[in-house]
Simulated scan of single mutants.
Amino acid sequence: MNWKLTGRYMTFIVIVVMLVIFVNIAIGTILLLKQVPAEETSPEQFTRQFQKELLVSGRDVTVTKAGTAAIQKSRHGCRCWMKTGRNYTA
């Protein structure tokens, strides 16, 4: 009788451990698959991405239309200081 109780107890422990492992794997998989780039970007990320919107020809620096739209859309781009010394406010 003692072994029967121990066998049931061990079976219960194994089932609980397997259930916890399964739930952890499922949650981890869901979190990995749901990783979507956040809409909110940090000012550093905005600056790195914005460099694609600058056109440099000789001494002239121009912002593309998409860059102007990105500045107006972004909270971080409200005040951009250009190298020319002018403040660009969207």
Rank of each mutant, 00 (worst) to 15 (best):
N2Q: 04
W3C: 01
K4S: 09
G7P: 01
M10P: 00
M10T: 09
M10D: 02
V16A: 13
L19P: 00
L19K: 03
L19A: 15
V20Q: 07
I21D: 03
F22H: 08
N24D: 09
N24I: 13
I25R: 06
I25E: 03
A26G: 00
A26I: 05
G28F: 07
L31C: 05
L33D: 04
L33R: 15
P37N: 15
A38N: 15
A38T: 15
E39L: 15
E40Y: 15
T41A: 12
S42V: 09
P43Y: 01
Q45L: 13
F50N: 04
K52A: 12
L54Y: 10
L55H: 09
S57D: 13
S57E: 14
S57N: 13
R59W: 08
R59N: 14
V61N: 06
T64F: 01
T64S: 05
T64D: 00
A66K: 12
A66P: 00
T68E: 14
A69T: 11
A70H: 01
I71W: 02
Q72D: 08
K73W: 00
K73A: 15
S74F: 03
H76M: 03
C78H: 13
C78E: 12
K83N: 08
G85Q: 07
R86M: 12
N87Q: 15
T89W: 06
